[in-house]
């Protein structure tokens, strides 16, 4: 197999015709999200172009500090996006979510790059795509977990109040919400594992095959990264919720949310 075929600029622009099709469907069905469609596709284009140039620069001038800098920015943005999607968390809860994402995420990234792939963490070729995949999934997972935790609490205020009033400890009352949220956060990852290989050829594997890697090598990467993603989502979400839900009550066991 050869390297991947280059996409020409003309044919590249042709793909935006598909967006016009989406736009037409949305107009027909009176979906008022046309603004979002334009914004989202424009932002995607710009962000990816920027990432493309940044990565080209990084690969041409590999420097441990630059690689680490990229990683830190990635982690920072993951935390920022999770927190901006869950604005109602109290300040201590926010700190715990940040620390959980940073420590669990970085831990798994380092473990994966050094122990599984067997490369230096300073090698941008491995570190950057892998950390992007792991943190991207952590972002969706933790956001989903926190959202479902909060919705659960809000929806079952009567339950929380009734159980506290009869003298149950806050741990006992609130822990079921942690479990429920963790389950909700993990289900998409688990479901995607189920369909993998049959219907879905996942992005990483497709990318490697397109660029000429033998499919047998590509599946090894894909299997290991799927397990790592699952662990990353699970750990980030568990630590955020398990240590975070303790900030909802004070020393007098008074619960506020």
């Amino acid at each position: 197999m050869n390297g991947v075929a280059q996409i020409q600029l003309g044919s590249f622009l042709l793909v935006y015709v598909l967006l016009l099709v989406v736009l037409a469907v949305m107009k027909k069905c009176r979906i008022s999200q046309t603004k979002l469609l334009v914004l989202a596709s424009a932002r995607m284009t710009l962000q990816l172009i920027a990432a493309g140039y940044a990565l080209t620069f990084l690969f041409e001038h590999p420097h441990p500090l630059l690689t680490m800098g990229y990683l830190l920015i990635l982690v920072f943005f993951t935390i920022y996006l999770v927190l901006s999607r869950n604005k109602r968390l109290n300040p201590r809860f926010r700190v715990i979510v940040s620390v959980s994402i940073a420590s669990c995420g970085l831990g798994i990234i380092i473990f994966f790059v050094t122990c599984i792939v067997g490369q230096s963490v300073f090698d941008p070729q491995y570190l950057i795509p892998i950390s992007g995949m792991l943190m991207g999934n952590a972002l969706t997972g933790v956001s989903l977990g926190l959202k479902s935790f909060w919705n659960g609490l809000e929806g079952q205020r009567a339950r929380v109040e009734a159980l506290l009033n009869i003298g149950a400890t806050p741990e006992k009352v609130l822990f079921p919400f942690v479990c429920q949220a963790l389950e909700t956060a993990l289900v998409p990852t688990l479901n995607s594992m189920l369909g993998m290989g049959i219907v879905v050829l996942p992005g990483m594997m497709t990318g490697q095959i397109l660029s000429g890697t033998a499919p047998t090598t590509a599946i090894l990467y894909q299997i290991t990264i799927m397990v790592a993603i699952c662990a990353c989502v699970c750990l980030c979400c568990f630590c955020s919720l398990y240590f975070g839900y303790r900030t909802l009550w004070n020393a007098q066991k008074q619960v506020a949310f």
Partner: peptide
Amino acid sequence: RREVLLAGQSVFLFEGTVGENFDAFCEARE
């Protein structure tokens, strides 16, 4: 709270039967 018990205004019962609810509340209070 176990001595000064409040039966609040918003009623909550677990899913399940009446008998199971007694047990579930006992479990919550250990």
